[in-house]
């Protein structure tokens, strides 16, 4: 535990010295502030007189904000993993009693905890607390798994930080999923199921009609899919570290 706290104190000092990381942590809060003031304007401009209600709007933006936190933190963790792989620090830690598994556990669970802590303030600042119900819980827990998936995707697919930037752009597509699911009615939208956030979002939207089997099935597939991705990315990262 003392070891983890010491590492955490180094990380906090490291964050202070790195503007990019600071931005990644505060981006969801800034987004929440932005949406708080821009939502009424958008509503007036685009949705007045349409069937799209302010509840729908709050729902989409609330989900988008909740997803933005793990996506941003996942990208940030991906860059840290890449940086520590590039600098060889990860390899040096792997041959200490902390080992590669301790290092990864720390690197991947810390942003999950931060994301969990940020979820409520983000909804509060954005003014979207009305979507906070028990039905949101499966969604909230499942999107936390996006963090290690994104981080390991970046660290194992990119060779360096420049390629990492390209990978981060690919990852940011994930943020479009809540909007796509909500607005696109074509069956082809099912294809976005290849992107992991599809499953918690779809599951949550089905849960809005009450606790039902379809929702549970979607969430169950989502859990399996997330775990499968996580496992294969972990193996790929471990192979790269040899």
């Amino acid at each position: 535990m003392a070891r983890l706290l010491f590492l955490l104190s180094y990380d906090l000092r490291s964050i202070q010295k790195d503007l990019m990381t600071m931005i990644a942590i505060f981006a969801p809060i800034l987004m929440a502030l932005f949406f708080r003031f821009i939502t009424p304007v958008l509503n007036k401009m685009f949705f007045e007189g349409t069937s799209f209600t302010s509840t729908d709007q709050n729902l989409v933006i609330g989900l988008l904000l909740l997803l933005a936190t793990p996506v941003m933190l996942g990208i940030m963790s991906g860059f840290i993993l890449l940086d520590e792989k590039d600098e060889g620090v990860a390899m040096s830690i792997a041959v200490t009693p902390f080992q590669l598994k301790g290092y990864l556990l720390y690197r991947l669970t810390l942003p999950i905890l931060v994301s969990l802590i940020l979820a409520y303030p983000v909804l509060l600042i954005g003014g979207f607390t009305e979507i906070l119900t028990l039905r949101l819980l499966p969604f909230l827990l499942l999107i936390l798994l996006e963090i290690p998936i994104i981080a390991l995707f970046m660290a194992s697919m990119a060779e360096n930080k420049v390629e990492g930037l390209a990978a981060a752009k690919v990852v940011s597509i994930l943020l479009a999923i809540p909007i796509a699911i909500f607005f696109v009615e074509h069956p082809a939208i099912m294809l976005t199921g290849i992107l992991p956030p599809y499953w918690p979002i779809k599951g949550y939207l089905l849960l809005l009609d009450g606790w039902n089997l379809s929702a549970f099935l979607i969430l169950f597939i989502g859990i399996l899919y997330h775990l499968l991705l996580l496992y294969s990315l972990l193996k790929r990262y471990e192979r790269m570290m040899r």
Binding site: A2, R3, F6, L7, Y10, R13, S14, K17, D18, E87, G88, V89, M91, S92, I93, V95, T96, P97, F98
Partner: peptide
């Protein structure tokens, strides 16, 4: 065991002493 790889690798933003202190905490 103690391992020194061919290519030296450290947290570049920290000092030599800070790096050593951090790594000593792993043991």
């Amino acid at each position: 065991i103690g391992v020194a790889f061919e290519f030296p690798n450290f947290y570049s933003k920290f000092t030599a002493m800070e790096n050593l202190k951090l790594f000593s905490k792993f043991y």
